[in-house]
Design a protein around this nucleic acid. Structure first.
Length: 933
RNA sequence: GCGAGUGUUACCGAGAGGCCAAAGGUGAUCGACUCAAGAUCGAUUCCCGUAGGGGUUCGCAGGUUCGACUCCUGCCACUCGCACCA
């Protein structure tokens, strides 16, 4: 009767969610109230939401609900990021019937078949899942203002992005440059690491070609160490490889076919004119102005797929070259070639490569230690090496300087070009084709490398509130580390660059200031995009100019709405976005908005695990939020997600723990229902009331600091455990006083941000009108905090624990417990010891007292005992014992019947002075001597 | 490899110089209720102990201190990021 079970509650939730007033309950407009604007990184709706996403949106929801109850005007908006190319790939795969993709959408995301068919249109995917996201978010009770929903490809938003880039361009923050990218010639598109089948860890390395002159052509050798040209003794060519002659940028060159292919991808004119076997060149002479004539020697280790396929040999400093030369010379050939040292490095003799090889005991090229030896020599020379006199004008320079200088000389004087390649092979596109390094030469960049811009962002970071505070250093490091960012793409969905329509603005670059767009999103949806000129946005966001084509009243409304909400108070996101999105948005805000509108705070989330394993849609290791809500209930899912770990910690979804969360909610409902029957008063009511005030204080502070777990610990488990003790202390068969009704009233509000559905229903049952979402957050009543009664109760609990621990080890069933209370002079000792500046001097001090001295050894013992006791007590408790008044005799007399019942014994309370028991001397303040019989 | 972080008792997770054998939750065991199961409630859950005590623990190895889970050094393991990708 009147009890709601979980299943009833579920019906309630369903009703509540389909009730449209619930949906509009959180539409939020400027008001006289203080505002609180929080927002989250919006989702890319290419698939269904899982519990990891769930937490990302539920945590801010709890915070939003908390501040709303505290009287703030809260804005929590949501939109969908639709820019980019992933859905294009997905729709192509679905269109061609790729089984893995279709299975993912059909089986895991449970998309109906006819809808999957429509997914050959990429827009259909994002539209479907945007609606799905909204549906599930509403189901979960997220307190979002849905009027402000948009996607990033609507014309109005594009106009907003145009405004943003218009400014960035004028500020010189968007510049054109060449940029090497991983590229798939088959897809005719740059490929990101996630697009790769193999080689996703491969780095792009920049080599320089050193051109050696042969009879009627050049032989380029790729190197990272152009300074070693002074020590070249020969070239290596693979005699078993067919090389090509090619016209490269108008010059005849000989190189491997692979190298020719690669060069053609790197903005070089390459036409192949013939072939030549490597063996045919062995023994011939080539020359370079900086090293003179050298011979071409055969080497099987030369890989045509590395560099140009021909290698310049510096045996004095390159262990591979040294060993290869040695091998040849063992058979008596080329014994006239000697290593030519050009670098001196501390810790090595004249020929570092030889030394390192000998030291490592390497005697042939295939030794696995070779890579390590090479690394060692390179590192030593790079960090400590200096060029020798043989290097002419570069003599004496550190290697790291000479390297750059010589590269420049090569480029300028000797026609060298840069050559890009991967550090590891192979690199294969998802389509199965080999990927190459490709030079995009008209790519647009955001100049994040600009030192002045970085400096300004660092300055903002100093002022921002970070949760948790440790992430601040990570932001600073990211700012330092950022280079220019290629901000445009050829393919995908998005906004075109206003001044260069061939390019689209890339997804991470069109999502940096949309928090400002939210503030007006619901009001500009009806304005034709053509009217939304940069001047209009200047007026709205910067309060500048006199735009035509839109009436002033509208403009002023938009302007004031923006100014009401901005700057935002907190942005929430998972920690993996620190190194790009979260930092980018600081850069953009800094570039576009004045000081007073800069971001104020950021909350960074941990990651989600599912039964201890990382969640991953592609591996099928996900649990959909919708399914979770179905199986466990919305509030259970919410409570688990915000309560199992603090937001910034990783959380692990484990079904067994989730089930017990559900029981906890049921228990809570039970307590609230029981409270309705409570009437009258009891002695311990004041204690419960006092504790409750403290719970309110801690729960409130916790939520202010985004500690959802801590808040739940206090607001649920803390109150529950108080309640358990309270009921234990109630006289037998008493139902509990009307204090329980007050507690219920507070409790329901405290948990409302976390489990809103349950609390909303209970709130109504408790006789309140209106949704709990807008109920007042409980204020602690200082008048109800009663330290003395809490102290008295503390004495009881400690004594109960002591009796229990004695009872546990005695081998008989007790029938009587004697409590021997310490005499009042011991309390005096306790207090004086506790408050003494120097505890070692206490004995002396106390013994000055005539009354003490009369007690002699007894007093000295008491001082020692008290010192030990104080040492083992929490400092706060010691302070209370010193400052508050309490009468142990009264406290125990009042608790006697409780103790008798609790232990099924008779209780005798006696003061130490009256007792002759041997233990009577053990009695101390707050620690009576206990005798169990 | 580089950058940022983390490592606590069966598990998850508090604790940040003496309050600590270390909160809370989960699981497990025992007991109460019940015809029974479930739910709920109570107790126990590092080792020893016929008295509220003692012993060994907080990734590993050292160090500072009267005293370290807490501070310092080194090592090991794990997580996140490392770029054009949401």
């Amino acid at each position: 009767m009147g009890e709601i079970s979980v299943s009833d509650n579920k019906q309630w939730m369903t009703d509540r969610v389909s009730d449209s007033s619930w949906i509009q309950e959180f539409d939020s407009d400027p008001s006289e109230k203080e505002k609180c604007y929080i927002n989250v990184a919006y989702p890319y709706p290419s698939g269904a939401m899982h519990i990891g996403h769930g937490r990302t949106y539920i945590v801010p929801d709890c915070i939003a609900r908390f501040w709303r109850m505290r009287g703030r005007q809260v804005l929590y908006p949501m939109a969908f990021h639709v820019t980019g190319s992933p859905v294009i790939g997905i729709s192509k795969r679905i269109a061609r019937g790729d089984e893995k993709t279709v299975a993912l959408y059909r089986d895991l995301y449970k998309v109906p078949p006819d809808i999957i068919d429509s997914f050959s249109d990429p827009l259909a995917i994002v539209e479907y899942f945007s609606d799905e996201y909204q549906r599930v978010m509403q189901r979960m009770g997220l307190s979002i203002d849905w009027r402000r929903r948009f996607t990033t490809i609507i014309p109005q938003y594009s106009k907003f992005i145009e405004w943003q880039y218009h400014h960035l361009y004028n500020q010189g923050r968007v510049v054109k440059g060449a940029h090497p990218v991983k590229y798939c010639p088959h897809c005719e598109n740059p490929v990101g690491d996630h697009d790769l089948l193999e080689g996703d860890k491969a780095d792009i390395i920049r080599f320089i070609f050193v051109n050696f002159e042969a009879d009627d052509f050049q032989i380029p050798c790729a190197t990272l160490r152009p300074e070693t040209i002074y020590g070249v003794t020969n070239l290596w060519i693979n005699p078993g490889v067919m090389y090509v002659r090619a016209l490269v940028d108008g010059k005849f060159q000989l190189l491997s076919r692979e190298a020719a292919d690669k060069l053609s991808m790197q903005k070089h004119e390459v036409s192949i004119t013939g072939e030549l076997n490597g063996a045919a060149l062995v023994g011939s002479m080539v020359s370079h102005p900086l090293c003179g004539s050298v011979r071409i020697l055969p080497a099987d280790f030369v890989d045509p797929d590395m560099g140009s396929g021909i290698v310049m040999s510096v045996p004095a400093h390159a262990p591979y070259d040294y060993i290869a030369l040695l091998d040849l010379q063992k058979s008596g050939k080329y014994t006239d070639i000697f290593p030519i040292p050009l670098i001196e490095v501390q810790g090595y003799g004249e020929v570092p490569a030889m030394e390192a090889v000998n030291r490592a005991g390497v005697d042939h090229q295939l030794d696995p230690k070779m890579d390590q030896v090479t690394q060692e020599v390179y590192a030593a020379e790079f960090s400590r090496g200096k060029l020798l006199p043989i290097c002419g004008e570069h003599a004496g320079k550190p290697v790291r300087v000479a390297r750059e200088d010589l590269a420049e000389v090569m480029e300028r004087e000797y026609g060298s070009i840069w050559f890009f390649d991967f550090d590891t092979h192979p690199v294969v596109c998802r389509c199965g084709s080999r990927a190459y390094v490709y030079i995009l030469d008209d790519q647009w960049f955001l100049t994040y490398s600009d030192p002045e811009w970085k400096r300004e962002v660092h300055h903002e970071i100093e002022k921002i509130t970070f949760v948790p505070p440790e992430v601040r250093t990570e932001f600073d490091r990211t700012v330092d580390w950022l280079k220019d960012w290629a901000c445009t793409r050829r393919v995908g969905l998005g906004t075109r660059l206003p001044w260069d329509q061939n390019w689209l603005i890339e997804p991470l670059s069109d999502s940096t200031v949309y928090m400002a767009y939210y503030t007006i999103a619901h009001q500009i949806g009806d304005i034709p995009a053509e009217s939304l000129t940069p001047e209009v946005f200047d007026y709205i966001f910067l309060g500048r100019g006199d735009p035509q084509g839109l009436d002033r009243a509208t403009l002023d409304t938009l302007r004031s709405e923006f100014l009401y909400w901005y700057p935002y108070d907190f942005r929430f996101s998972a920690k993996d976005l620190i190194s790009n999105h979260l930092t980018f948005q600081l850069f953009h805000h800094r570039a576009l908005f004045p000081d007073e509108l800069q971001p104020k705070g950021m909350v960074v989330f941990g990651m989600g695990l599912l039964d201890g394993a990382k969640m991953s849609s592609s591996k099928g290791n996900v649990f959909l939020l919708d399914d979770a809500a179905e199986e466990f209930g919305e509030d259970t899912v919410r409570m688990f997600l915000v309560g199992s770990a603090e937001p910034w910690q990783d959380f692990d979804w484990r079904s067994d723990l989730v089930s017990s969360t559900r029981k906890q909610i049921d228990r809570f409902i039970g307590y609230i229902h029981e409270s309705k029957k409570a009437t009258g008063t009891n002695r311990i009511d004041a204690w419960l009331a006092s504790r409750l005030q403290r719970r309110i204080v801690v729960a409130t502070e916790s939520l202010e600091y985004f500690q959802t777990r801590q808040a739940l610990q206090e607001a649920f488990f803390g109150i529950e455990s108080d309640l358990k003790w309270y009921r234990r202390r109630l006289p037998a068969n008493m139902p509990g006083g009307s204090i329980l009704q007050d507690l219920a009233d507070v409790w329901v509000r405290l948990l409302a941000p976390i489990i809103p559905f349950t609390c909303d229903k209970l709130f109504g049952e408790l006789g309140h009108g209106g949704p709990v979402s807008y109920a007042e957050w409980p204020e602690p009543n200082p008048g109800l905090i009663d330290p003395e009664i809490e102290l008295a109760e503390e004495l009881i609990t400690r004594t109960v624990e002591d009796i229990e621990s004695i009872q546990k080890i005695i081998p008989f069933t007790p029938s009587k417990v004697m409590l021997i209370l310490a005499p009042s002079w011991k309390l005096e000792v306790f207090r004086r010891v506790a408050t003494a500046e120097d505890r070692r001097m206490v004995t002396k001090e106390l013994m000055k007292d005539e009354a003490m001295r009369k007690r002699g050894k007894e007093a000295a013992n008491a001082i020692q005992q008290a010192t030990k006791l104080i040492h083992g007590l929490p400092p706060g408790l010691v302070a209370d014992i010193c400052s508050l008044s309490f009468d142990e005799e009264v406290i125990f007399s009042e608790a006697a019947s409780f103790l008798e019942e609790e232990f099924s014994v008779t209780i005798e309370i006696i003061s130490a002075e009256e007792s002759t028991h041997a233990k009577a001397g053990m009695a101390l303040p707050f620690k009576p001597a206990i005798i169990v019989k």
